[in-house]
Structures are given as structure tokens and as C-alpha cells.
């Protein structure tokens, strides 16, 4: 059900990737409204994501401005997956020069060791070339890997699948 409080919470943006709303990112799990009382449930992307406190503050702020008494709680399970990034979120990432994640790895049994760079289909978000090179699986935030395009020579970030 789309309520006024839910609409406000859904429009709050991610502090690290402001082209995405918390809903686009899939971290907004629930908005429960009882009169002017609102409980918003969010889930961390990575265990150490330092943006959680800012997300909480932004949610409380925006909802208080609209006259709600808001509280933010954390949900740890199920663990966040990049599969929860919405289609609109993926389009916004691409529009801002970030490469959107492919499907998250499915797992059955022990996690296989991968000694070669992760097999991904990544293309340059600027020029579209598929001739790209992984520079590092770790980027400026926990959720991104660093790539470079061999065609236009620009570096870019890829939101890595988890």
C-alpha cells in the first residue's frame, strides 16, 4: 500500500549514490504507519556500510518535517542482494556513469574459489565498449569494483554482485 509516509521514505536518496533512492537500492524494507507514528525498516548493504547512520538520519528528518514521529530499525535477514536494485535504479546508475550489477551469484554448497577475475559481462557506461579491464574488486565504497575501458580509456565503477 502506498501511503504518504511510505512515499516520503521511498524518495530519500542514498548518501553515497544520490542518483538512487533507498527504494531503488533495495535497502528500504518496510514502512509501517500507525497514525503519526512511523517505523521504517532498512537493511545494510554491507556489514560495515558507514552510510547507515546517514540513511537513518535522513529518513527521520524527512518524515519529521512532514509531521511524523519516525523511528528507523534495522533488519539483517535476508541479507541485502544487488538483485534488489530496481530497474529504475539500474537505469539511474547507467545514466550517471556507473555500471549496474549483473545477477547475484547463486550458491548451493561451498563457495567456489575464483582465482581468475570474476566472469562478468560488463560494458563501459560511457562508450558502451565491452573491451573493459578489471582494475580492482574494491572501490571507493564497499559496493563497487573499479574498471577501466580499453576503448575510451576512461575508468568507471561497477556495482558488484552480492
Amino acid at each position: 500500500m502506498v501511503t504518504a509516509a511510505r512515499a516520503i521514505a521511498a524518495s530519500v536518496t542514498d548518501p553515497e549514490m544520490p542518483m538512487l533512492t533507498l527504494e531503488d537500492l533495495g535497502v528500504l524494507r518496510d514502512v509501517r504507519e500507525e497514525g503519526r507514528q512511523v517505523v521504517v525498516t532498512i537493511t545494510p548493504t554491507y556489514s560495515g556500510c558507514p552510510a547507515m547512520a546517514t540513511m537513518r538520519d535522513d529518513l527521520v528528518h524527512r518524515l519529521s518535517d512532514a509531521g511524523y514521529d519516525a523511528r528507523v530499525v534495522v533488519s539483517l535477514s535476508p541479507a541485502w542482494s544487488t538483485d534488489w536494485i530496481t530497474r529504475r535504479g539500474r537505469e539511474a546508475l547507467a545514466a550517471h556513469g556507473l555500471s549496474a550489477p549483473g545477477p547475484a551469484p547463486r550458491r548451493d554448497g561451498p563457495v567456489p574459489l575464483t582465482l581468475l577475475p570474476a566472469p562478468r559481462t560488463v560494458s563501459c557506461p560511457r562508450c558502451g565498449s565491452a573491451d573493459v579491464r578489471l582494475r580492482s574488486e574494491f572501490g571507493a565504497t564497499a559496493c563497487k569494483a573499479l574498471y577501466a575501458c580499453e576503448a575510451c580509456l576512461e575508468p568507471f565503477e561497477h556495482v558488484k554482485e552480492i
Binding site: P44, Y46, S47, L76, S77, P78, A79, W80, V111, L113, T114, L115, A118, E137, F138, K160, I162
Partner: peptide, 15 residues
């Protein structure tokens, strides 16, 4: 729940 998140992260560390 903590472990389920950690598995995703530590997979990258090990690789």
C-alpha cells in the same frame, strides 16, 4: 543473519 552477510563479503576477501 550476521553470518549470511559475512559470507558474501568474505568470499571477495578470499578470492
Amino acid at each position: 543473519a550476521i553470518a549470511a552477510k559475512a559470507v558474501k563479503e568474505v568470499t571477495y576477501h578470499r578470492d
